[in-house]
């Protein structure tokens, strides 16, 4: 795959744009089972991300991802701030001063991000959280890489798996986060965090497809 820092920066800008376009949708999902601020919080956080990295030349991918992390931590406000902030921080720490990343590097960054999210939120799969879309996606990515699918196929399979995981959150009773106060009333609703996580992975795939296709 080999993406350089400038390309990763463009993907992050696209993620920010996508989040902004989906902010009412994410907020509506959150209003059904949470505190109704997920989309607005994420949008605010990613607008701060753009400000923070717009002058970054992308030479140091790790540093750039740490800037993304700090912008999210300082500006999101809801639980997604520390969670996505931790995810980008861990990915940035893993990538360090590499000047470009391969699909295997991308897998390792996502895995670090997932482990960070699970530790910060004390979450595991099946609790109606972003882990329910992220973890199956990462597992599928690993299997696809091991089976030597080409890079775009690997990313597409990752996104499809994230989508299934995201859709499955409808069937789960929330035991984490604000939705856990609703118990069974949370059934039938998508988890907003699982949806935003799926949308981010989808945007990454689509942008890599544009760059490489």
């Amino acid at each position: 795959m080999s993406l350089n820092g400038q390309q990763i920066k463009q993907i992050i800008f696209k993620i920010a744009q996508m989040i902004d376009e989906n902010k009412m949708y994410l907020t509506e999902l959150d209003a059904a089972i949470g505190d109704g601020d997920h989309g607005i919080n994420m949008s605010k956080g990613f607008q701060a991300v753009i400000d923070k990295i717009k002058d970054d030349n992308g030479d140091n991918i790790g540093d750039m991802l740490k800037k993304v992390s700090m912008a999210l931590i300082a500006n999101v406000g809801g639980a997604s701030g520390p969670l996505y902030g931790t995810a980008f921080m861990k990915a940035g720490m893993w990538v360090g001063n590499r000047r470009e990343i391969s699909i295997e590097d991308y897998y390792n960054m996502l895995l670090e991000a997932l482990n960070g999210i699970k530790a910060r939120g004390r979450a595991s799969i099946g609790e109606k959280t972003m882990v329910d879309s992220l973890e199956p996606a990462i597992n599928e990515l690993k299997v696809s890489i091991d089976n030597k699918f080409n890079e775009l196929e690997c990313l597409e399979k990752m996104v499809n798996s994230a989508k299934l995981g995201m859709e499955n959150t409808k069937n789960i009773v929330a035991t984490k986060g604000r939705a856990s106060y609703l118990g069974e009333r949370s059934i039938g609703h998508l988890d907003p965090g699982a949806v935003s996580c799926y949308l981010i992975l989808k945007t990454i795939f689509e942008e890599v497809k544009k760059i490489k296709g």
């Binding site: 639980a79 701030g81 520390p82 910060r120 604000r178």
Partner: peptide, 11 residues
């Protein structure tokens, strides 16, 4: 009080 208050305190 709630969820993210703990996560942000730890962070």
């Amino acid at each position: 009080d709630l969820g993210s208050a703990l996560m942000n305190s730890e962070m």
